[in-house]
Structure formats: C-alpha cells, structure tokens
Design a protein around this nucleic acid. Structure first.
Length: 424
RNA sequence: GGAGAUGUCGCAUAGUGGCCUAGUGCGCCCGCCUGCUAAGCGGGUUGAGGUUCAAACCUCUCGAGGGUUCAAAUCCCUCCAUCUCCGCCA
C-alpha cells in the first residue's frame, strides 16, 4: 500500500497516479473520508478506555460503599468501551480495505497509456534473415518435436491444455539454464534460494496478487493455500514482519521455483506450444533495499537481465511499460522481449518491476538505520532472470538450422553440447 | 492423522484476576570513573497508532484472533508455531 500520509497531505498526487493508470480517482475521496472517520473513532475509543482504566485502579483500592458505587459507574462504562472498540475496529477495517485496494503510485518517467503505449529503450542484436539463408524457419513446437524435447500432446492428455512435458534434450536444456542462471546470479551477489511454491493468503495478498490479478491465481480451497505465479511471492514474504538492518541492504535473492498461472482471460491467445502455459519454472531475482536506492537498483536488475540475454546470444529489445499496463504493485516496469522468428516480433521473456514500499508496507518489512530513530518501510524490486519455457522457445527458434538441428549458445555448450540434433 | 507439553522485551527468566506503569539478569547504547582493557557506578534499551505548532500526554502490543469480567500476561474458546510420543510416508 501507499504511504497513508500522502492521502492527507497530497491527495492530488494519488488522484494523478490513478488517472495515469487509467483508473478512476473517485476512490480517493472515499479514502479521505474513511481516514477521518477512522481517526475520530480511535479518539473516541481511547478517551473512554483511558477513563475505564483510571476508574479500574480506584476500584482496586476502594472499600465498601465507595467500591460499590465505582463498580456501578464502571459497569456502564464497560459497555460503552466495548461499543466504541467495535466501532473503531469497523472504521479501521473499512479504511484499511480501501487503502489495500489502491494500486501503487506511478513513476513520473513511466510512459502514459495502455498495453501498446510502451517506449522502446533499446534494441540489441539482429534477427536472422531466414529468407536470405534460404529456408523457412520452423516454430519452437515443430523443432521441439523434431528434437524430442517438447511433448504437448501428452501434457494435454495428462494435465490438460497449456501443459507439456520437457523430454530428452528439452529437460536437459532446462536444467542447464537453471544451473547457469543460479550460478551466474550467485556471482553477481545474489543469495540462491529454493522457496515454497505454495503460500498462505497473507503472502499472496501482501504482494498484491489478489487484486486485479486474482483470477489468474490457483487457490487450493481445502487448505486455503495459493500456488504462486512467481517466486516474487515467497521472496517478498520472506522478511515479512521483520525489521532489517540498513547496513545489510541491499539484500538480493535469486530463487528457482515453479510458477502456476490460470491464464484466465487469455483463451485463444498463444495456444500453440509452450509459450503460454499454466506451469513453468523460473529463476527470479529479488531485492530488498531502500526507497532512495530503488531507482538505481531497478536499472541494475535490468542490466543483469540484459547481460543474461547477451549470454544466451538472443536478439532482444527493452521496453518501458506504459502506466496502464503496470501491475498494481509496480511504479515502473521494464520488459525484455526476445525476437521470435516465426511470429516476426519481439515477445516478453523477462520483466523487472520497482514496487517501492508498496509490498513492504503490506507485509510489514521495515528498515532500521543505526543512529536514527524509528523505522522506514523497505523497498522491494523483482526481475526475471530466466523463465524456462519462453527462453527455450527463443533458443530453439533463433538457433535453428535448415535441417532442424539447433545451435547452442556458447555459455550452454558445457551442459548440452554445441548442437541439438533431431532424433528423427 | 492421534495424544501431550510449551509460546512473556534482542537472549534468558519472574509473574495463577487489581501495588504489572510487565520485575530481574545478560547483551546492547550513552555517560562517569580508572595508564589501556576488564571490572565498577548512573541512565537508557519492543513496535505501532491517536491528540498536538511543540513539549507532553493517551491508547494498543506478553504467538494471533475471539470470549468471560468493573478489571486479563494470568481464566475459557479457536487458530498458528515449536517440542515429545504414536501412526503413516517421499
């Protein structure tokens, strides 16, 4: 959630952010009113409660008639306190509910608009000219089947549409990517992590995924647990209810986990192959830092994502995602999009978001600086290092040769060899 | 899944309904003292919220949430976590 003081001190800034996201700023008025009601009810309760405590002390000392009289007074007061307490609880819950439903602010630099209003920041590498090379490129599924790497038919048989098996070199390719990504991240100073992929509601809610994205989340009713759509969730919740020492920041984690997405509302989109699936594995980067440092850290995360794509020798571009397409937690987001030859366009393979204090406030992760009083909320950022399925799509399609074999980038050759050969 | 025990301030502990405004020790911070260090002496040491120009005051916080009571760390219920034993199991 955002800083509640901002609602009192500068509500227009909140209205502007909502407008830039393409949402109605009307909730701000409701929030300001709810805040006033909350404070009034707290003051009313506290006054009554203070009186009750005061009399309670006298009761303990009093004797006989005096005691009986005090008891009569305080008995009536007790009912009032109970009532005021309930009213306060309701007012706080009302305010808190509205505040949590509010998305984060928006970075002033983020381009305004919807999904198509992104700004291209950079383009790296040159897509191959298959016409000049004299052959028609195969798509990743065709290549995957030739190589014995991807089996979507049996995925669908066993688990349904948008499921797959990685087989043979496909399985080896994923393991190679995981190993390379985790060890590379470790050299950059990230702490390797393997987090739980099943979390409690608190973690899911705290990261902001039960708002606009709720339909995309798998929920296990019987146990009230959620399957995470990204390890951002268990990583953001990792330090919940903790106060971090400022000297320990930035804290960087690289986590390998499965990701589960219902893909509600994307029926008919990317139905072929493993580009858009209900489950995939991913290595995710995550940083805890301060608000002041978050902007520079966001650039660093983007830098590491780019370094990774360079390592995989993929042509890609970087876009600055428009305000209307940001998640509710992010104030700014950069996507890296790899070239997909058979689609003739760049498609998202990684994404990095600056969530500023939004998640940390919800999950109660604070920072204490030695020599200063009090605490401040931490800032959190996340970035994809390697989403397995989409990376495999890009590697196969961009590395393919006329005979259906696939040339492997140098960095992966120690794991799977120089060329993946068709098995038939 | 079954049976039982436990959960108090950074750590360790005291606290079985009102003098708990949660004590004590250790650790930590500030100061004093002493060639240095240690020891000793004095003070401070959870976090959040509200009123307020401020100073200050008030409220909440004893794993979490409810309940009983004029009054709850203390009694009751639910949940969570940890530990012990049994069962099952990769």
């Amino acid at each position: 959630m955002i800083d509640p003081r901002l609602l009192r001190d500068d509500p227009d800034q909140v209205r502007t952010a909502l407008r830039r996201r393409g949402e109605s700023p009307a909730v701000v008025d409701a929030l300001v009113a709810a805040d006033a009601a909350r404070r009034a009810s707290i003051a009313a309760f506290e006054a009554l409660r203070a009186e009750q405590k005061q009399i309670g002390k006298q009761v303990a000392r009093a004797q006989g008639d005096e005691k009986a009289e005090l008891l009569a007074r305080t008995k009536a007061l007790s009912a009032q306190v109970k009532e005021a307490d309930a009213a306060q609880g309701a007012a706080v819950a009302e305010y808190d509910g509205l505040l949590r439903a509010l998305p984060n602010l928006v970075a002033p630099e983020a381009p305004e608009g919807g999904e198509n209003d992104f700004v291209v920041l950079d383009t790296v590498g040159t897509p191959r000219d298959f016409a000049a090379e004299g052959f028609e490129p195969r798509d990743h599924l065709e290549l995957g089947e030739l190589l014995g790497a991807i089996d979507v038919e049996r995925g669908a048989k066993v688990s349904g549409s948008r499921f797959y098996y990685l087989t043979g070199v496909g399985a080896q390719l994923e393991l190679a990517l995981v190993q390379l990504a985790m060890s590379t991240a470790a050299t950059w100073g990230f702490i390797p992590m393997i987090p739980p992929a099943l979390v409690r509601p608190r973690a899911m809610e705290g990261t902001g995924f039960l708002g606009q994205a709720a339909d995309d989340v798998y929920h296990l009713e019987k146990d009230d647990l959620y399957l995470v759509g990204t390890s951002e969730v268990p990583l953001a919740a990792y330090h919940s209810d903790e106060i971090l020492d400022a000297a320990s920041l930035p804290l960087r984690y690289a986590a390998f986990s499965p990701c589960y997405r219902r893909e509600a509302g994307s029926h008919g989109k990317d139905t072929r192959g493993i580009f858009r699936v209900h489950w995939f594995d991913k290595v995710e980067m995550f940083t805890y830092t301060t608000l002041e440092e978050s902007w520079a850290e966001h650039q660093r995360l983007l830098g590491w994502e780019r370094e990774w794509l360079d390592l995989l020798e993929l042509p890609y571009r970087v876009i600055d995602v428009a305000t209307g397409d940001l998640g509710s937690s992010a104030v700014r987001k950069f996507d890296c999009e790899a070239w997909v030859p058979t689609q003739g366009r760049y498609r998202e393979v990684s994404s990095t978001s600056n969530c500023t204090e939004y998640q940390a406030r919800r999950l109660d992760t604070r920072v204490r600086t030695a020599g200063t009083d009090g605490t401040t909320p931490a800032a959190t950022l996340n970035g994809t290092l390697c989403a397995m399925t989409r990376t495999i799509v890009a590697l196969l399609e961009n590395g393919q040769q006329a005979d259906g074999s696939v040339r492997v980038p140098t960095a992966l050759q120690p794991f799977v060899g120089e060329v993946l050969e068709p098995i038939r």
